[in-house]
Design a protein around this nucleic acid. Structure first.
Length: 811
RNA sequence: GCCGGGGUGGCGGAACCGGUCAGACGCGCCCGACUUAAAAUCGGGUGGCCCUCGGGCCAUGAGGGUUCGACUCCCUCCCCCGGCACCA
């Protein structure tokens, strides 16, 4: 390091370039001028951040990954959309307002301010001109508009449904406000299940499409698996059992129609609509007790409980009368809420039968042996045959099942059926801080949509955000009482608001046309940018948000509003960064976040560090040692490049080992970023190059190697890269195309050939790349070190691997 | 129970299609240089065991197998993390 070289000052450098880029509006991306624009596009997006207090370490990884991808794609000639916005509605701000006073809007907007400032300070390449926040009327106006389209199609509807009710707060609480033990997040009271009118989106209509189209997206298998789990498709049959005493059919869903002859009793869920009509004090008492139980308690129950109803059901395959029970091991919201019980072949039915001393009739057995009848036998393959099953006796179980359903279809008492675990999306919240649902209730007309021209229905001011048995919006009397848009008579506005998952189901569309005030977006623009080419975020949103958004887009596609059916063509699931417990907590007390690290190490070092910690799709721990190490690398890079700038000659590189190394590094880094998303190894490749460069700072290839290192590190550390680019006498690195490796420079005239004897390395020889396989073997057999291990033995095989090795097999 | 992902030095992790001593890069640690000293920086070392200093042997959760060759493929088992779950 020479005396003239300035000390590396990240703060000054980062501020300098951030100003330059801002002045030039460098990170803004224009929509294409015409549809014929040949520039390829790429849409890079991280999941919409929720503006809690300030930026935290959890944000660092996804946004930095997205940022590297943005720079990389940009410099590879893509028109890259990389926007930002905020998931501004939601409970935390509302709860903070209740707790500490203030308006949720003020709290939220203050947080957004702080986060935006932190994001700018880190230097993420974001098109801020498209910024949105979901709480702005300009945004939610179009959400209300879309809701009305759903409503017209019957895809949004209202019905009674069980909800979580907190008896202390006198309010419905969101599922996410209920802790694992069934208590209210805020007051600790056990929540109850209540039947209330709720708004739903008919997502179950799309269950099959949501499942099928997973095949068309490039997502990690684990995420797809979670969605498949969540959707929970199962094939079977729906079979009607007649209640003998009432002459009324009750359908059940079963995946095992082959066991129909084994049904020895019938069970209704306590919430089944039939149960309420049974005139029995014993049954009523059981239903009351079941309702009082927490869901978790019901699921965890070891002993089966239930009560006989006095009714009997008739099995349609054999007209057998079987007793009907009510038992809470049957769930009300799966299948039909009623089951045929086959204790011989179902663990739960078996347990119930044992407890209530009910008959157990085996109908399925392995072809070649008898089974232990003290346990339920649940196999169901071609090597199981049916017994005690009338006309299907002796058939393979699946085949027999098919025959039985076919017969029931002819009789009209059953059919093949597919059942899903997925349920309709209940999206109404009895809370204040959310998007108003644009309908009114009219005594004469019922539910009436607010006309499009009157949108947005703006969230009114209220004095008290705390729900007191009715949604907070109900307090805004003047706002609530309106004339019915249909008949002009008195009507009341909907006082519930939308789940914030609605807000995040279409924000990526709005970015494409963020200023539009005549429509949610222009179809041409959304069709240009979408689907998102790289969506980045955490696994925690793998089911809820990522299913809802997929559903939303499918509906919009059916409505002709967008021309695609999947929002996220590829998804990268980032790991979570935790902060190590070593020295950090000791030194700096309670909260340590990105701001503090940026202050201490500079944004570039923090960005590099976060990606160098390990593979970006794994969890990792931020430690002070790691950050120190990365700060050291950046300083080293700074020194070495400055030395090169002063001491190395200009002009064409000489093509020596350093130039070769530079080309190899280009190839490696390009592949690592572009194809593998292995950011950690791309950085280590550049480190290797810098290590070599530091040993030869003034040679003929040094300048080329330095330029290469700086150019390759730019997506990670854009500020110092830009400054060093200037030090090297060049300008505007951010506009520089991504370097390309010269294939000729990747080829070597010689290579180091390994000589293995029985698979063990014995020698290494430098041989010409053009060497033939025969020559490779000859050279290997000349190696004294190899011969020492061959001596006295018989050579059995000689295996040459071109460009790599020769393996001599001896015995 | 079903489904998904993992197990490599003191630590984070490399090794991409089965092919050159497995352990890149970094952290930590050790030795040395510079310094009155420290920091910073620079150079060297760093899986284990043995060694006549040439090298040899062992080693990627455990055990088998396929192969000329296995961290990589197959089988069995153990352990860890995550999702779904009285889902009929």
């Amino acid at each position: 390091m020479t005396e003239q070289t300035e000390r590396y000052d990240p703060k000054a450098i980062e501020a300098k370039w951030q100003r330059v880029w801002e002045d030039e509006r460098a990170s803004a991306v224009a929509n294409p001028e015409s549809s014929g624009d040949p520039t390829p596009k790429s849409y890079v997006l991280e999941q919409l951040p929720y503006p809690s207090g300030s930026l935290h370490m959890g944000h660092m990884l996804p946004f930095t990954i997205g940022d590297v991808a943005t720079h990389f794609r940009r410099r590879n000639g893509f028109r890259v959309l990389h926007p930002m916005g905020f998931d501004a509605f939601g409970l935390p701000a509302e709860n903070a307002a209740i707790r500490a006073g203030g308006h949720p809007r003020e709290i939220t907007e203050r947080n957004i301010e702080a986060i935006r400032r932190s994001m700018r300070r880190i230097g993420w390449w974001i098109d801020w001109s498209r910024e949105l926040s979901t709480h702005e009327p300009a945004y939610y106006r179009w959400q209300q508009w879309q809701f009305l389209r759903f409503l017209e199609r019957g895809l949004a509807y209202r019905r009674g449904a069980p909800v979580k009710w907190c008896p202390n707060d006198q309010t419905v609480v969101a599922n996410e406000q209920v802790l694992a033990d069934g208590s209210c997040e805020r007051c600790g009271t056990q929540v109850e299940s209540r039947l209330m009118e709720q708004w739903f989106f008919r997502i179950t209509d799309y269950a099959q499409a949501l499942l099928d189209d997973l095949e068309t997206v490039d997502w990690p298998e684990s995420i797809k698996a979670r969605q498949r789990n969540w959707i929970g498709r199962s094939e079977g049959a729906e079979v009607g059992f007649r209640i003998a005493e009432w002459e009324e059919d009750v359908p059940v869903f079963t995946t095992r129609p082959d066991t129909l002859y084994g049904a020895t009793f019938f069970v209704l869920a306590p919430e089944h609509e039939l149960v309420a009509r049974i005139d029995s004090e014993e049954v009523r008492e059981y239903v009351r007790r079941a309702a009082a139980k927490k869901t978790a308690e019901r699921a965890a129950a070891v002993e089966k409980t239930g009560v006989f109803t006095g009714l009997h059901a008739i099995n349609p395959v054999n007209d057998e009368r079987i007793p009907v029970y009510v038992a809470d091991y049957v769930l009300t919201d799966y299948g039909t809420g009623a089951i045929m019980a086959v204790p011989a072949h179902d663990r739960r039915d078996f347990d119930f039968a044992r407890a209530f001393d009910l008959p157990i009739r085996q109908v399925v057995k392995p072809v070649d042996r008898d089974v232990d009848e003290t346990e339920p036998y649940t196999e169901h393959t071609e090597s199981e045959v049916l017994v005690n099953s009338g006309e299907v006796d002796g058939l393979a179980a699946p085949e027999g099942g098919r025959r039985l359903v076919e017969r029931l279809e002819r009789d009209g008492s059953g059919r093949f059926a597919v059942n899903f675990r997925l349920r309709d999306w209940g999206f109404s919240r009895q809370r204040y801080w959310g998007c108003p649902i644009p309908v009114v209730y009219c005594d004469d007309c019922g539910i009436v949509p607010i006309p499009d021209r009157e949108l947005p229905v703006v969230l009114p001011e209220v004095d008290d955000y705390k729900p007191r048995g009715r949604p907070p919006l109900a307090q805004a009397e003047e706002w609530v009482n309106v004339a019915c848009p249909a008949c002009g008579g008195p009507a009341r506005r909907e006082t519930e608001t939308m789940d914030t998952f609605v807000d995040s189901s279409w924000y990526f569309l709005r970015y494409c046309d963020a200023e539009n005030d005549t429509a949610p977006f222009d179809r041409g623009l959304v069709d240009y940018w979408n689907p998102v080419d790289l969506y980045i975020g955490g696994v925690d949103h793998a089911t809820m948000h990522m299913i809802y958004a997929r559903f939303w887009v499918k509906v919009l596609n059916d409505l002709g509003l967008v021309g695609f059916r999947e929002p996220f063509a590829s998804f990268y699931s980032n790991g979570w960064v935790t902060i190590g417990k070593t020295k950090i907590s000791k030194r700096s007390g309670a909260f340590v976040g990105p701001d503090e690290f940026v202050e201490r190490y500079g944004a570039d070092a923090v960005r590099l560090c976060i990606l160098f910690l390990g593979p970006a799709d794994q969890d990792m721990e931020w430690t002070e040692e790691a950050a120190d190490g990365m700060a050291r690398f950046v300083r080293r890079l700074w020194r070495v490049v400055n030395d090169v700038a002063e001491g190395a000659p200009h002009g064409e590189p000489a093509g020596g080992p350093l130039a070769r190394k530079a080309h190899e590094t280009i190839a490696k880094a390009t592949d690592d970023i572009g194809r593998r998303f292995a950011f950690n190894t791309a950085i280590s490749a550049v480190m290797e190059l810098v290590n070599e460069l530091s040993r030869d700072r003034t040679g003929p290839d040094a300048r080329f190697a330095a330029e290469t290192a700086v150019s390759l590190i730019q997506p990670y550390a854009p500020h110092v890269a830009e400054e060093l680019w200037e030090v090297l006498g060049r300008e505007r690195l951010w506009e520089e195309p991504w370097p390309a490796a010269d294939p000729a420079m990747l080829e070597r005239e010689t290579f180091e050939m390994a000589v293995l004897v029985n698979g063990r390395l014995r020698d290494r020889l430098v041989v010409p790349s053009s060497i033939s396989e025969q020559e490779m073997i000859e050279r290997a057999l000349e190696s004294p070190k190899a011969l020492a291990h061959i001596d006295g033995k018989t050579v059995q095989q000689r295996i040459p691997v071109p460009g790599k090795l020769v393996n001599i097999v001896v015995v």
